[in-house]
Amino acid sequence: MNIILIFLSAAIVNNLVLAYFLGICPFLGVSKRLDTAVNMGLATTFVMTLAAVITWLINNLILIPYDLPFLMNVTFIIVIASLVQLVEMFIKKMSPPLYRSLGMFLPLIVTNCAIFGLALFESLRGYSLLEGLFFGLGGGVGFTLALVLMAGIREELEFADVPRALQGAPMTLLIAGMLALAFMGFAGLLSV
């Protein structure tokens, strides 16, 4: 039961993008087209889930027993960077068109603070390994959800008559704000 709560909390109620405002860069950068957004979300989910598990292992098996919590930030970044490299190679091999459409944003998952934030939250809240796994999965699903919602709206927006001063970034930021407001409605759903 606790696992389900953690998953839902990370995916919807405490959505990393729309409640914590982490990972805004890819949220705005890769949300122009729906199919790219879905793929970016999947890549990030993969990195997030694996990162949650590996950082938990490193944290609980190495850093805490040897009294090295000050190395947390550095090691987490190494883990995330290596995972992103792996994903990049994998996508380049499996789907060159996707590799091209993600472009610079794929290696930039390294600097996606949503992933780093997720790893830090995980150790801060003292989750168990299984809880951590679902926390990572939930965070990834939440990120994908936010990205897909945004991309869907922006695709529809292409046909809308936006005032010239608001075209592009201003309109996108306004929509991001409204999405975040809408997600606040989930706040009373559960508290984890």
């Binding site: 190495i62 850093l63 040897y66 090295l68 000050f70 190395l71 550095v74 090691t75 190494i78």
Partner: peptide, 14 residues
């Protein structure tokens, strides 16, 4: 001592 462990940990992980 902790310094050596820290270096070894980072090096090992890297």
């Amino acid at each position: 001592m902790i310094l050596i462990i820290a270096v070894l940990t980072m090096g090992g992980l890297g």
